[in-house]
Amino acid sequence: MSYFSNITNAITTLVDGMKVTMGYFVRAREHVTLQYPDEVWPIPTRNIGVGELDSYNTIRSKLVVDFEDCIGCKACERACPVDCIHIETFKAGPEEDIGTTKNGTKIKLRVTSFTIDMSECMFCDLCTPPCPEDCIRMTPDYQFVSNDNVKLDVTPEERWRDRGHLIYQFSKVSPEERAQRGAEAEKEAAAKAAALEAKRIAAEKAAAAKAAEEAAQKEVTEETQEVNPSQNMVEAAAAPEVTPPQAPPGPPTQAKPPVEAGMERVDLPMETSAVPENPVDKPVEKPAFTETPAEPETSTDTNDASKGETENG
């Protein structure tokens, strides 16, 4: 009898299955998923508790910089807990007019590079309040897809992640001008260093001459025990001139401490934003697929540039 119950069972279960598929066939449109590129979900509107309701009543997503208003003050770079903003500035020439912001502030620094690494950004919104010109802000645009594979002007160190399309360059300064500015700054620094070197050599020569003279005089004073006041005056004049030898450009300076900036602003224990103290330790934390072993730290590089710039200024 199991033979017939088998057949009956088979028929009933098959009919059940056919009912299910027909039910979906008839009502497929009702259950089908969102056709993403053609349709998108409406952006949820809610108050995130910062700023005006109408301007900030939205989700926090892609960071955007109104570059025309950026004065290159690097407040956002310092505020960023994850170091995803990198700014490179050069001082404008004396007769160069870069323009003014919408608040009427005169822009004094030429921002040659303003990159935001969206693959590192954690959408904390800490960079927007420090901005004196209100030019960096978060937008509700959450779609990071793009149709073109844009080659952005980012440093090779930033490229190691191979997420070039997530590093957004906001500076409208052309790479040529950026290179030119960099070269000019370098030349200036080199000239300054050369001048200092020349001064130092002169001072050394003077010191050597003085020493020789002193040695010669010692022999004399041993005999005469007389003090030449003019010799003393020379020594006194030369002593402040003898500066320690100028450090070569690009010493391994410590990374800028952005932690403090964030701490001051938000009264929270910032364990999340704890940056490793030693930048050398950083590559170890990175994923294992890094092919560049112990590459120079990005932050130090930009720091060097900024340091050079401030020295030049």
């Binding site: 497929a28 259950h31 089908v32």
Partner: peptide
């Protein structure tokens, strides 16, 4: 198309 509707898809579009 039939398979897509039965599997709650839209099929070629």
């Amino acid at each position: 198309k039939v398979s897509a509707f039965m599997q709650v898809r839209l099929g070629p579009m």
